[in-house]
Design a binder for these strands. Structure first.
Lengths: 223, 223
DNA sequence: GAACTGTATCAACACTGTGTCGAGAAGTTC
DNA sequence: GAACTTCTCGACACAGTGTTGATACAGTTC
């Protein structure tokens, strides 16, 4: 039970509703214990096979006490996903900048590589997020927003390349962007979770990027 | 309770394990009533909000009696999905033939249009199938097999076009096929269920086909 | 027409999991 | 040391799943 040495706690992050219901205090450890238990268990088995009791036990508290810290199992997972998404967004290289700096192929690769690295390390969490969407509106909204962000970026890239004359005309940029981003989502997810059929871990990006380039530039990009 | 007039019952289709457990008899009506109730309710609300009791009530029987006909709620949905998938496969035009007959763009369009028409009419069932995958291995396997079939077809197309010299080289045909089929799955699903962001009902195919053509032929196909 | 057999039905039960309530323990403040 | 806030949990109410055992109700079969 000895508290793990904490580098330093975030200065004054507003709890934002999802977490504990009361005010700030020291039962912070418990909250963290619950989150850590959830992350650990999610890498072991799917969300549906984890009960509130498992989370409580794992954090060394009783089930009712769990409800003091989180309103539901979903809320725990959403908190974890919030953070994962924030992590993924954090180091995000602007695609447009990356393209300008390294050229289309290398630029795209750098952006996507960087983007997906956050997800690759926690497949269980990714799966949980995906499992949550059917039943949980908040999860749906969160993911919608994430997708929307990517789509906006990619739309900008396509429009930019078209305006420069480096990419040919075609379907509206936003529509192309939606399809391409959806392809990436699906393919990366399948690969991450080892679905069948899915692309090989080491080839996913190669294949996806090739399709992006051909779709956007309307030709086989040599570079 | 009067039996609906049945055109004629299928001659001697083996029950194949999923349906009723006993032997053949006349409680066929009840089995059908359960399936119909499920289909109806699924277009009203998601699977998670439908209980075994709802299905039983809808079919005019008690909950235990439901279990005489199906081993679980999942089994009912799987039966429905089996049929939907069979429907979709049935009228399926061979892509290769369609391409040869109508050229790349029109051929692809004909194949995909035809394929997705079966799904478009029962979005609730599609959603249920998707909702089932996280928790139900059988659902996963079924969908895997479906995807595998499509991937095989598309792989053949790409290899054929490459061998004729009409399509340039690139990533292995199968890998391209996987990514493209996954894109379609995701995009069509999002559109069907009105996710945000998603492609407009009337544009999905245009956009997807354009990407397929550019990806496969490595150039903007004029035709 | 009595005994037999398989189909069909359901009340009652056992179980798992969620979320709530109310009584208190434990710490803090004045 | 009284009052307040934070934290904890036993006991409950509830919703849903799946099972058991008794029973009704055909048809046969003799």
């Amino acid at each position: 039970m000895a508290a793990l040495p904490e580098a330093k706690s975030p200065p004054t992050d507003a709890p934002k509703g999802r977490g504990r219901r009361g005010t700030r205090a020291s039962g912070d450890d418990r909250e963290r214990a619950i989150l850590e238990t959830a992350e650990r268990l999610l890498e072991e088995r799917p969300l549906a096979e984890i009960s509130v009791d498992d989370l409580a036990k794992g954090a060394g508290i009783s089930r009712p006490t769990f409800y003091f810290y989180f309103p539901s199992k979903d809320a725990v997972v959403l908190t974890i996903i919030d953070r994962l998404v924030a992590d993924a967004a954090e180091g995000r290289e602007q695609i447009l900048t990356a393209l300008a700096e390294h050229g289309p192929r290398a630029g795209l690769r750098a952006s996507l590589e960087n983007l997906y690295s956050a997800f690759r390390s926690r497949p269980g969490v990714v799966r949980a997020g995906s499992d949550l969407r059917p039943t949980n509106g908040e999860a749906r909204d969160l993911w919608s927003a994430v997708m929307e962000g990517w789509v906006a970026d990619v739309t900008a890239v396509i429009e930019f390349e078209r305006s420069r004359g480096t990419a040919p005309d075609g379907p509206p940029a936003r529509e192309m962007a939606i399809a391409l981003v959806q392809m990436n989502e699906r393919a990366q997810y399948a690969t991450l979770l080892g679905e069948e059929p899915s692309l090989d871990r080491d080839h996913v990006l190669d294949v996806l990027i090739e399709i992006w380039l051909r779709a956007i530039y309307g030709e086989v990009v040599s570079d």
